[in-house]
Design a protein around this nucleic acid. Sequence first.
DNA 1: TGAATAAACGCACGATCGGTCGTAGCATCG
DNA 2: CGATGCTACGACCGATCGTGCGTTTATTCA
Lengths: 200, 200
Amino acid sequence: MATVQKSERTKTRVLREALALASRVGFAGLTFGTLAEQAGISKSGLFAHFESKEDLQIQTLRVAEQMFVERVLGPAVKEPRGVARLRRLFDGWMEWIHSGTVPRGDILTAAAFEFDDAPDGPMRAAVVEGHGKMHGTIERMARQAVEAGQFAAGIEPAQFAFEFLGIVHAHHHVRRLLRTDLHARRARAAFERLLATSAA
Amino acid sequence: MATVQKSERTKTRVLREALALASRVGFAGLTFGTLAEQAGISKSGLFAHFESKEDLQIQTLRVAEQMFVERVLGPAVKEPRGVARLRRLFDGWMEWIHSGTVPRGDILTAAAFEFDDAPDGPMRAAVVEGHGKMHGTIERMARQAVEAGQFAAGIEPAQFAFEFLGIVHAHHHVRRLLRTDLHARRARAAFERLLATSAA
DNA sequence: TGAATAAACGCACGATCGGTCGTAGCATCG
DNA sequence: CGATGCTACGACCGATCGTGCGTTTATTCA
């Protein structure tokens, strides 16, 4: 028994450091050398846990996704279907961006920007898959709002999802570029306008 | 006379190659080695024209900006003030993204994504400055639309600019991530909705 | 044309990258 | 307790990065 292997605890700790590091310098800057230094482990020791840099990146991304689900998506789906759920998702996402959890903003959005033009590979595939899942989730929520009669019948859920993600990404980007939170209200206003013009 | 120095022509040619290269692999991937190879010049020969990598990046960015002004901004400002001008700007920008001019989409937007979280430096400053100019331009156009009575009096030009840029950036990003042009109509629909809800 | 100048070159540097290998230490379990 | 196997280590490799240096080649101008 006692399957809480020593190795497993080390790996968890290393992954936490990896997430922190990636959130500061991006996934491309997540190198074995710097991670080893930060985690207090030797470079070659890392290879006992990750078989390649790509593997390290993907596992780190998974950790981030898991945190996003716990802190943003989970609370949202506890709300009743429709507009309330969409609102909670947006609020949670904005909070996630501003929280100290991931200091430089939304690491998942950052990864999407980083790898949108990368050559094909497992990491890019993982990012694309994550984007697809998120898009599908928002689309489903929008459809439920239509079915509940909260959104007009003519509203296209996919169009709604595109614009929803666009607002979140725009906020993330401007925040990082200008290093100010002043645009949070712009994003919120855009979201409210999106909701208003979708209403039945 | 004949002040069209040999060097100047070489530099122009090299910069054209640099722009093509950066549009394929990003500004970070714009290395002296690969550029030298592509331009048919030696690595050290490049240092006769660019004193550092940062210098090379900035000069390449300037070339791109100049092209953007010629092909997108110029035609737009020939339209009458207000909605017509904004429409032309959007159309031109979408065309610019899809044109073969810069194969991988809008290199200026790409640069903004690449450097939004970079450490301070001349290149980041240049990108921020470019974003500020663009934002200011759109804001001004929106204000003129309000003054012309085409937009409602309550419309905030800065909010309009934020959402305009958001739509363009979202399109650029999704296009690169999913490698399809299917979302051009989503961007257009979002833009039309933005115009419609801004109308007087 | 010849002297002065500028452009382009080959070469090499130190740093850092992802990754391999042989080995020593320590946890795990019979 | 003692054997086994995983964890972590230090040293090292080849490639590539940005960037100097000293020299050769090409251009410009008197």
